[in-house]
């Protein structure tokens, strides 16, 4: 999944800046680069400008919501892994996950280990944690 040995890049989208900070902290020792966006519009801008290997987006956001963002990501760049993090897992109709091609739906509040596992699996990262590559913070 990574090209030329560069670490994979994860785009995290949430309208809550503290969430972005906390997720970045959680993933700070993972062998990946974390990029953050405060809205779906900002995320689409970032996606247009650089390589993104996976998108982890919040569901409820002002303006465009998470599922719409991930639907568009799927259409624009089908190779980008898509993960949804939401406090409203019940809101996601059955079948919608497959329809959107989501690799994971993570409930809020999240479990750190589960979040890390889901992200690693989405980015095809194997091996021990701790090989730290940092770019976003």
């Amino acid at each position: 999944m990574t090209a030329g040995g560069d670490p994979p890049v994860l785009l995290v989208v949430d309208d809550e800046p503290h969430i972005l900070a906390a997720i970045s902290r959680t993933l700070r020792r993972e062998p990946l680069v974390v990029v953050t966006a405060g809205s779906a519009a900002e995320a689409l801008g970032i996606l247009a400008g650089r390589r993104i290997d996976a998108v982890l987006s919040d569901h409820k956001m002002p303006g465009m919501d998470g599922t719409e963002l991930l639907r568009r990501v799927g259409a624009l760049a089908p190779g980008t892994a898509r993960l949804l993090i939401t406090g409203w897992t019940a809101d996601l109709e059955p079948g919608r996950r497959d329809e959107l091609g989501l690799v994971a739906v993570i409930p809020k509040p999240w479990d750190d280990a589960e979040l890390r596992r889901a992200v690693r699996s989405a980015l095809g990262i194997h091996g021990p944690a701790g090989a730290c590559v940092r770019d976003g913070l």
Binding site: E16, I19, R28, K108, P109
Partner: peptide, 21 residues
Amino acid sequence: AAGVAHEINNPMGFIHANLVQ
């Protein structure tokens, strides 16, 4: 309750993640 739970979810999420860190 659901709406309120969501309101609590967000801070709970980042507080917990922060504490772990």
